[in-house]
Design a protein around this nucleic acid. Sequence first.
DNA 1: AATTCGCCCTGTCGGC
DNA 2: TGCCGACAGGGCGAAT
Length: 306
Amino acid sequence: MPELPEVETIKNILEPSVLKQTIRQVDISLKRMLEGCNPSKLNTLLKGQVIKNIIRRGKYIVFIMEKDTLVIHLGMTGQLTTSHTSSITSNAKKTSPENIQPQKAKRSIAGYEFPLLRPIEDRHTHLKITFENNSRLLFRDVRTFGKIIFHNGHNLEKIPRLSKLGVEPLEMTPKEFLQKHWPIQNNRNIKAFLLEQSFICGLGNIYVDESLYFSSIHPLTPVHKISRDKWMSLLSNIKKVLQKAILNSGTTFSDYRKPDGEKGSNQEKLKVYGRGGQPCYRCKTTLVKTVIAQRGTVYCPHCQIF
DNA sequence: AATTCGCCCTGTCGGC
DNA sequence: TGCCGACAGGGCGAAT
């Protein structure tokens, strides 16, 4: 579920505590999450390297180090957080609900305030990076759809997952984009097309539904039937939807947390996603919940047309 | 060649 | 109360 705004938020919050840090030790406990090198070699490869830069590409967060690059995809339930080892061994370990019994802790978790709410370390923490200053970067992922990619060197184009990505929506201008790509010949429906990362990257299920709603486009509309004007509107709405979500620190429906443990607030602003069966804010028509492109999809059958 | 589908995975929730 | 199936879905590889 972490899409572009969530990854951007995580990157921005992580930056000050991770940048310029020297890696002392790396522990990976779920080896199948790692691509690009042998899990037993990861620690040797990364040890001693300084994190020089952090960037986001689509839904990927990229750690540029002196020699190599480490890429993380959060999948569905991935969480990145920083903590100091001292707080894990004293306060947090004793009192954090996550560290007592995950099952029991859930019931009472709402009663805990930051910093105890932050995901610290449990059986779902699959990657731990310890820095020379004793702080740690933790990657926790309940459903393990996430990925950790080691890459030798800095050439991102050589990383297969990254090289397939399309344009960054926040960096493109609708007008220039259409001058370059128009007409857009594709037989698929617009929902499936936008979920595909190779044209525009960073959009997931939530922000595709939201962008289509704002553009009054039915999610099943074939791409080649969308007029140039509609595309202009769609592209600018994509940017607006993403920018607003970043201002709201992302959308928290279940697992997504900022690295400081707090939730985003954009879920309160959504117009269609998660609102199936409820009235459209514009016309009061009951919003339809269906499945398109193998994904739960919500739209207004009155406002959103072909 | 283009597109669709199945699968990976765990926690939650609703129905019986 | 407890069990079980359905559901959530990003991205890849297999199947069509």
